[in-house]
Design a protein around this nucleic acid. Structure first.
Lengths: 242, 242
DNA sequence: GACTTTTAATTGTCTGACAAATGAAAAACA
DNA sequence: TGTTTTTCATTTGTCAGACAATTAAAAGTC
């Protein structure tokens, strides 16, 4: 079906593709054991090293895990949210950092996505997430926070906001968008004044959740998006000047 | 910094992690050439096979590409949208299929995310995307479409809807959500009647874009979400009965 | 100057070996 | 008999060395 993979590539890539298809299309199920490396090398008529390179490719995508010893081997891995998160973050971060994405485009996407969980977040927010957001808000008021720490706290704040929707699939999909912004924002120097302004928006966001005020949340996110873009634009303008 | 990776793992995994960090943190830049396998094996004091396994791991994540011949080698790869898309789709699909996700949760997330591009899509939709949507809508009216073909067309339709927002980052983030739904929806048998109903919603969606009617688009997406969940619930109920 | 051949560098693949881990079975022991 | 220890076969992890295939630069040729 999706056999766009083919001839021109390495043997190890071809073999990895074949096994990957077996997993994705369900012919190999979770926790099932693959044949041993020796058996695979016979099946595919290649050397053990080639098989191993193929298996390492799959391991890098968390599709399999391996275990040594008798009755060990390679097993189809149940992809955890944790694994999926970190893969998503790595890919999103690299995509943004390598493709000179316009920061406005990234901001626009991020806040559009975040806005998508406003109704659910307002309806379902639990004390657990709210307390994380309050904690991060408090941390943000500390004046001796470095720009990196500030951005990290910002990410934690927004991740918790997303988690308010109590939908793990939604959280997963948004993780990449929220986390990948951090390196971009890290380039901005946040003055005391700009921090104060963002903090007030964050406070409003918490209030909107507490009072389940959907319009307020949407408006606040919009303002945050706009302000982020302004700050970024200013940084770019300053850099231009030099 | 993020050195949660450590001791208990394979040498090849450790080496892959080190190189990955170098790329993610920018010490190795796009198109830069890595040392040759022989040099790397000296640097890390391991055999060439171990280095190769590490490099294959990175290649599986599209972080590097390799080229044979003199002046060949491993180069830091510029992650393309295409590569990022397919990684995202694979991960999302597996996450959903392996974690017995409640279909309601997946539907909820998908339509929440899709709703996030309604304002942008209405404002910016181009004739290009609209014609794709019309083409898929027309295809959906064909009665001899298999359930799989129907679902594939559905995915193409919604991807094009997302693309209307003209924001590649947004499209990237939503690809996983839209595509990963297909295997879940494939389990549903779409009767002529249910197809007709969905087609009418799709038609309304096209109209809402043409007339830039944001409320109509949001309402239509909501109805689609609800109807999808109904169909899924019915499938589950029928299966229970047996 | 244009074309061909050689050459050196580099990845891709293969073979064979040994180390390390590990669970099962066998042996030893109480 | 029941429990602990030892042995053992299997499998992955790592290594060393070899050769094939590819490739671009360098050298040679006309």
């Amino acid at each position: 079906m999706k056999n766009t993979r083919n001839d021109a590539t390495d043997l190890s890539a071809q073999i990895a593709s074949k096994i990957r298809d077996s997993i994705v299309e369900g012919r190999l199920i979770v926790n099932e054991r693959l044949p041993s490396e020796a058996e695979l090398s016979e099946q595919f008529s290649v050397s053990r090293s080639t098989v191993r390179e193929a298996l390492k490719r799959l391991a890098a995508q968390s599709l399999i895990r391996t275990q040594r010893g008798a009755f060990g081997g390679a097993f189809v891995n149940k992809l955890s949210y944790q694994d999926a998160y970190s893969q998503n973050i790595t890919t999103s971060t690299l995509l943004l950092s390598m493709n000179d994405i316009n920061i406005d485009v990234a901001c626009e996407a991020r806040f559009a996505l975040e806005r998508s969980c406003v109704p659910l977040a307002c309806a379902r927010r639990s004390e657990e997430q709210l307390s994380v957001m309050r904690r991060e808000l408090h941390r943000q008021t500390s004046p001796d926070l470095s720009d990196e720490e500030w951005c990290a706290s910002d990410v934690a704040f927004h991740r918790s906001f997303v988690d308010c929707a109590q939908n793990p699939v939604l959280s997963y999909q948004l993780t990449g968008a929220v986390e990948a912004m951090q390196p971009l924002m890290n380039m901005i120097t946040f003055t005391a004044r700009s921090r104060a302004k963002i903090i007030s928006h964050h406070a409003a966001l918490i209030t909107s959740l507490e009072t389940q005020d959907i319009p307020l949340a949407e408006r606040t996110l919009g303002e945050l998006a706009e302000y982020s873009m302004q700050l970024a634009a200013k940084v770019l303008a300053d850099r231009e000047k030099k």
